[in-house]
Nucleic acid binder design. Sequence first.
DNA 1: GCCACCTGTCAAAGATTCCTGACACATATC
DNA 2: GATATGTGTCAGGAATCTTTGACAGGTGGC
Lengths: 123, 123
Amino acid sequence: MPEAPPPAPTGDELLKVLSALGNPHRMRIVAALMESRNYVSALARLIGMGRPLLHMHLQRLEAAGLVAGTLEVAEDGKTVKYYDVTPFFYELTPRVVAQAAATITDTTETDRTAGRSAKEEAK
Amino acid sequence: MPEAPPPAPTGDELLKVLSALGNPHRMRIVAALMESRNYVSALARLIGMGRPLLHMHLQRLEAAGLVAGTLEVAEDGKTVKYYDVTPFFYELTPRVVAQAAATITDTTETDRTAGRSAKEEAK
DNA sequence: GCCACCTGTCAAAGATTCCTGACACATATC
DNA sequence: GATATGTGTCAGGAATCTTTGACAGGTGGC
């Protein structure tokens, strides 16, 4: 059977992926996780960076679907969060970009019909 | 003849490309230029954005090698700068990213032994 | 000269992102 | 209980990016 046709990522998706990967730290994180899955604290020590910071970067990567974290319980009962790299694949060409650009959800329009939590309306 | 082998972009290059494309405006600019080459002012009107801003975005894209601008002289003598999309192609996978991550020039650590162009050493 | 169009740059404001140092909460070991 | 390891979050400042308005040219046509 033939190969799957070139998947056309949505603008927002591609945007998240590109901005997530367009950062040196995040690139290194992916690289480190490629060698072997790891949990947050250990990874932080490995690439010398604060936990809060790493945590934030990992969230950005996970939100883009590039890595996946799972909260596991080690044999000794400690809860540990392991991260793995997702086998992603994106083709970056003018056509793909142009196509994606057409489906971008302009986030600037603060809301409109989008009902917020109905809480900060206090202002 | 066979296809060219998977090109391995350097970390800095990939970084510039990804961060350049990881912006809604810049994506739309590429999309607009895909339909037809155009000059700055016209493009600005086309996608409703200020010239100074467009100018800056175009520079970022050009610095990443995604578009190319040429200053041309129209028949009536007016100087106009046309921009074209460069036929780029990048493959985004964990392996590529990991490989690129290994060749990132950390711009924060002022230098070290890394031999630079031997020019800004002046300081 | 004056107007219309093009090019480019600058400074200052606005918005985001990035980063750090607490803090709170779990479990296992000493 | 005290210590060490793991988890996560928050507030605030630092650093960057984004955006705008004003300015300084250039050419051609009325």
